[in-house]
Design a protein around this nucleic acid. Sequence first.
DNA 1: TTGTAAGCGTTATCAT
DNA 2: ATGATAACGCTTACAA
Lengths: 336, 336
Amino acid sequence: MTVGKSVTMQDIADRVGVSKALVSMIFRGVPGPSAETKERVLAVAAELDYRPNRTAALLSLRRTHLIGVMTDIRNAFHAEMVEHMVAEAAQVGYEVVLGPVTPTHAEADVIETLLDFRCEAVVLLGPEASDDALGAWGARVPLVAVGRRIKGVDAVRADDSRGMSVTVDHLVGLGHRRIAHLTGGSGAIGRDRHAGYRRAMHRHGLDDVIRVVEGDFTEQCAPSAVVDLLADAGNRPTAIVAANDRSAVGLLDALQRQGVSVPGEISITGYDDSTLARMAHIDLTTVSQEPKEQASRAIRAAVERLDSGRTDAVSSVLRPRLVVRGTTGPVATHVV
Amino acid sequence: MTVGKSVTMQDIADRVGVSKALVSMIFRGVPGPSAETKERVLAVAAELDYRPNRTAALLSLRRTHLIGVMTDIRNAFHAEMVEHMVAEAAQVGYEVVLGPVTPTHAEADVIETLLDFRCEAVVLLGPEASDDALGAWGARVPLVAVGRRIKGVDAVRADDSRGMSVTVDHLVGLGHRRIAHLTGGSGAIGRDRHAGYRRAMHRHGLDDVIRVVEGDFTEQCAPSAVVDLLADAGNRPTAIVAANDRSAVGLLDALQRQGVSVPGEISITGYDDSTLARMAHIDLTTVSQEPKEQASRAIRAAVERLDSGRTDAVSSVLRPRLVVRGTTGPVATHVV
DNA sequence: TTGTAAGCGTTATCAT
DNA sequence: ATGATAACGCTTACAA
C-alpha cells in the first residue's frame, strides 16, 4: 500500500488563501495572527483532518523532545517505572520512546534504534552492559542508568543494602535473633543485598547467628533452602530474609508443605514489593524500591542535562521503604 | 542544552570530495557506486561517527515502515506479545513503536501519538474503545485489534470458548463429571469463557451437574467460592475450572487451607498460562492463548494491508492450547 | 560512475 | 498582520 498523501500546511494555506507560514504560527500558538484568520485556518484544518507532521517539524527544529527508555518489557518492575516515566516526561514537555530489549534486540541495538529516532537522551532500565560501554554511550548522549551502581554517568537506584538493613531492623524489633538470609546469586544486586544483610546483623551484634543459604532469585531454590535451614531442630532460624519476592514465595510454599506456620513459627520477608507480594493470600512483608520516585528522578536527570545544561554526572540513591504485611510477626515466646 | 549539530551526508561528501547523492546511494546499498569510493565513503563515515538521520530520510521517502503497537505495559500477557511483535516486524522490514496506555494517556491519546509518529499501521492490544470508535480509526489507518471480538477491522484473538471446552474435555477424560466453574465477571472475556464451559458440559451430557459460582478474575473471589462449593459434602465438585490463572491460584490456596488435596480430591484449572501458572510450586494446568502466534498474525495482518494492498477485514481466531500440569488428575476412585 | 537539483513538510528570519 | 524564502538532511529522477 502506498501511504496516502496527507494534508499539509500548504494545503490549508491554499484553501484559506494565506501563506503556510501563517498556518504554522497558528498551530504553534505564537502571537501575531488575527483572531479571524486563526479561526478560518483552524476550521479548514479540522475539515481536512489535518495533522501536523512531527517528522518535518523536528527536522527543521533540530530538537525532538524525545527521551528514549530502554527496558526489558517482561520485567514488571520496569513496566511500573515506564508508566511513571511517561507521565513525568509529559509534564516537562518531553515524550518517551520505548526501546524494548528482547531476545532479538540486544541492548546495543536498542540504544542505536533509540538514537536513530533522534532521542535527545536515553534512560536505561537495568542495563547489563559493562561500565566502560555505558561510559562510552554516556559520552555520546545524555544517559541515565537506573537500578545499577555505576560512576561517570547519571545513575538512579535504590539502596539495596539499606533495604536489607531496615528489613533486619524490623525483624530484630519483633524479637528475632536467628535471622537467616536466602541469597540472590552472585550478581551485583544479589551481592548488595547479601552485604546489607550481613552489615545489619553485625550492627545488632548478631554476627554469631548469621546464616546464609545460596539462592537464585527464583522460587526453585526455596525447597532445598528450607530443608537446609530446618535440619537442626534446635537451631532453626525464626526468620528468613529472602533476596526477592519470588524466592520468598517459594519459601512460603515450602514451609507450608512442611507444616511450619508463617509467621507463627518463622517470619519471612521478600524484596521488590511486586504484584506477587501484594496478592491477598500471600500478603508478603517486603521492601519497595519506590519505582515512581526512581522514574521521576531518572526523567528529571535527563531533562536537567537537556534543559539546564548540567554536565557533571549525578547519582541518586533512593531509600527503599519497608512494607510490612502478614508474613512477619513477633518471635514465638516459647522457643526451645 | 542545544542538541549538538550532527554529522550529515553533506559533511561526508565534502570530506571525500563527492556528492551527497553518491553517499546516499552507498548507504542504501543501491548498485552503482564503485567499490573504491564506497570504501572511502564508509571509512570517512566511520571516522566521523556518522549516523543516518532517519527523520530526514522518512520525510523524503513518505514511508516510515513503522507499526504502532498500543499496549497496557503492565499486562504481562501484552508484554509477551510485544516481544514477539518486535521480532516479527523486524523480519518483514518494519519497526515497532510502542504506545503505552497509562493512567495519564488514554487509548485515544496513544493512537494519536502513534499516528503523530507516522506509524503506517497500528496494532491495538486489548482495546477497550467501542466498536464504533475502533471502526472509525480503522477507516483512517490500517488497524488490527488483538484479543477482542470485533467486526469490520482486522482482528486476532484466541477462541476463549474453545479453550474452556478443551479444558472440560480434559477433565472429563480423567473421569470427572461434577465440574464447577468459577467465572470471570460479566465482561466480554468472562462471558465467552463461561459460555464455553456450559457448551462443553452440555456436549458431554453433563447439564445436570453444571455449577457456576461468580468470580472476578482475582484471587480474592476464591475463598468464598470454595466455601460455597464445599458446603454440601455429598455434592462436592471433583474439579473446578477457573476463568483465569489468578483466580485459580486463589482456589489452590483456599483449598489448601481447608486441607483439601489438589489434585487428589479436587482438580483445578486456570487460563492464560501466565508466569504464575508456570511457577514450580503452583504448576497449574491451564490454557495458553498462544501469544507468539497472536503476535505474528497481528503483524502479518498489518503488513498485508501495507504491502499487499489487502483492504477487506480479516479475522483470525486462534485455537488455544491446553497445558497440562500438576493440578489436574484422575477423579478419586472412592468418591462417596 | 558520478553530479545536479528538486522535492518532502515544517520552522524561522526578514520583509512588507 | 501577513508573506517570501531559506534552511533542515535525505531521496531520487535526470543529466553528464
